[in-house]
């Protein structure tokens, strides 16, 4: 594709620099019209629209990308804006990001009026446990799939693929009944057991994909040097797989961190909720509390988001590796 864009840009160059300049001027004019309209009507949407259209006229790629980026970030901006609103202005039609008379009251309410911190703590405990167990169990299992050609390997791999097809309801119903019969309703252990179900197959899948990219020569060399197979695995493969292991940990973490449906079915009592249940309650319950919902969302989202953006290239390559590339 790079050469495709080269051809188009060469063509532009041939038709003269003027064309780019004309587009720049056109874009500038559109943006200025937006600014004027915004100043006249006090609606800042016009400025945004003008700038976007101007950018589109000047360099259309940037116009599209900026517009789409705004759409992607939009819900985050909205929850930030709503979390800062005073209670009296929660239901308003304004779209400013920092509202007039912004306040942190919603944030403090989370800690003084709600079990918010407890919910986050529960989620954290569950999520970390699931992630650890998922990684431990999957690390060796995936290695077996990657290095040996044993009887049952192919059906095993196909089964792992098939697990992706199981409708959530097909597992939630029996797990709900089992958990209830074992009297694990309201116990976070019930939830941990349920989450491991989904964490393990996916983890094996990603890790196997990664191990496959490590040449077997490495272990063979080590074994020639006197290591046995397990030592070679622990000394060579595991350290080399740190990126993949942390990706698996993170995916299990992200999957369990925001899980809603199973938690809703298993955790009934407010005192053992995870945060998704708590936040949902702010909206669904008698006392709608938009401000608290938004503030809670910001608090649980921003750390994850920063982590994700900081490591996005790394994470994405991990997912691509495991789920699709062979």
């Amino acid at each position: 594709m790079s050469s495709l864009s080269e051809t188009t840009s060469t063509r532009k160059r041939q038709s003269g620099l003027d064309w780019m300049q004309i587009r720049l001027i056109l874009g500038g004019i559109i943006a200025v019209i937006g600014l004027v309209l915004a100043l006249l009507s006090n609606e800042w949407g016009y400025l945004l629209g003008g700038v976007l259209l101007g950018l589109l006229a000047w360099k259309w790629q940037h116009g599209i990308l900026v517009a789409y980026s705004i759409l992607s970030v939009f819900p985050v901006l909205r929850i930030i804006a709503i979390s800062l609103r005073p209670t009296s202005a929660l239901l308003s039609r304004t779209i400013e990001i920092i509202p007039a008379n912004a306040t942190l009251a919603s944030y403090s309410a989370l800690f003084t009026e709600e079990n918010f911190l407890l919910w986050v703590w529960q989620s954290l405990a569950i999520t970390v446990t699931v992630s650890i167990i998922g990684v431990v169990v999957a690390a060796t299992g995936a290695y077996a799939f990657s290095r040996w050609r044993f009887a049952g390997r192919r059906p095993g791999l196909i089964f792992l693929m098939t697990t992706q097809m199981i409708p959530a309801g097909m597992l939630i119903i029996p797990i709900y009944v089992i958990v209830a019969q074992l009297q694990l309703t309201n116990q976070i252990i019930g939830l941990v057991l349920a989450y491991i179900t989904t964490a393990v197959p996916f983890s094996i899948w990603i890790l196997k994909g990664y191990y496959d990219t490590i040449p077997p020569d490495l272990e063979e060399a080590a074994m020639v040097d006197g290591c046995n197979r397990m030592e070679a695995f622990y000394r060579i493969i595991l350290p080399l797989s740190t990126p993949a292991l942390s990706i698996v940990f993170l995916f299990n973490f992200l999957g369990a961190w925001a899980e809603f449906i199973v938690a809703k079915v298993i955790l009934v009592s407010n005192a053992v909720w995870t945060w998704p249940l708590g936040l949902n309650d702010f909206i669904g319950n008698f006392n709608t509390d938009w401000g608290k919902y938004a503030a809670g969302s910001v608090l649980v989202t921003v750390p994850v988001l920063l982590l994700f953006m900081w490591q996005s290239k790394y994470l994405i390559s991990g997912l691509t590796l495991g789920s699709v590339k062979s």
Binding site: H62, P75, L254, A258, P276, L279, T301, L305, F308
Partner: peptide
């Protein structure tokens, strides 16, 4: 579009993958 030679590619990409990183319930 992102595969073309354009500036700020990394920033656009990071912003566009945000929906993926957001917790579903939120």
């Amino acid at each position: 579009i992102l595969n073309q030679k354009i500036r700020l590619k990394g920033i656009y990409r990071s912003l566009i993958v945000i929906p993926w990183a957001l917790p579903g319930v939120i």
